[in-house]
Write a protein that binds this DNA or RNA. Sequence first.
DNA 1: CAATAGTTTAGAATTATTATAATGTAGTTT
DNA 2: AAACTACATTATAATAATTCTAAACTATTG
Lengths: 142, 142
Amino acid sequence: MPKNCNFIEKLREVGLRPTKQRVNMCEVLFNREKTFHFTINDLVKMISEKMNQKISLATVYNTVHAFEKKGYLKEISIDSHKSYFDTNTSAHHHFFDEDTNELIDCDENDIDPVNIKKNITGKKINSVEVLIKVASDNQNQK
Amino acid sequence: MPKNCNFIEKLREVGLRPTKQRVNMCEVLFNREKTFHFTINDLVKMISEKMNQKISLATVYNTVHAFEKKGYLKEISIDSHKSYFDTNTSAHHHFFDEDTNELIDCDENDIDPVNIKKNITGKKINSVEVLIKVASDNQNQK
DNA sequence: CAATAGTTTAGAATTATTATAATGTAGTTT
DNA sequence: AAACTACATTATAATAATTCTAAACTATTG
């Protein structure tokens, strides 16, 4: 079976029509071993290059947000200038390499569960996320 | 002694000239019991109202960033649309109330230290921050 | 109090994101 | 497989957040 079948399936599941652009986007996003972190700009470049075909910025924004709303992508905000998306949508933690501006998944086993002893009264915890900022050892920190 | 003396001092320490606008800003920012979370927009409004005098957006941006660079303010990014600053610059964790869009400091004693068992090799950990998103109990989560 | 170095300001420029409206296309119907 | 329809894509315009600019202003120094 052609490798795109599952993407077409996936798009249909989510209620999106499997158009050429969206299938290309899926290949860039989901056709990989490891989870993948990207900015919208990264993604536009990668799709244009890999598929050597231009894709409109608006399409990328719309489709990324459609995937996000349906839970196939997750937004991670580092600071006001750096917003990433992650193909790993489960609750998990991140390293952020300040030297390379790279976002790296934290293996579930490499960090102990966060123990919150006291929550805001009357509220339910929806998510707990840890961001660990790292940098080269021999360098002044941010 | 006039209440502004310490702000003038503080500004001088940081290498900023104690102009009228900056002293006003300091009053809004630092003249309070509890730590204070705000967006740039919040701050402009508060200064204008409290001091009943207009202040330029550019001045607020410049001065906030000057304070941030010198370590008197800390940026906290919730998602790409919500960037907050915090007058508590020590490493600490936050609750984010998704109902009210309010950022709340987490008391140091209310959360156990985060235990990171394995770091990226060759890198030094600069900061570890936990963001706990909460919402009203009887409400569908984000 | 004059000189100067740094500051404030309005508005222009820039950047990231979203909206728009015309054109195009996937999927369905015939 | 032609044609229909609903949804997509696109270039561009609009909006929003932030930064830049250059002229007018002000705190400090001598």
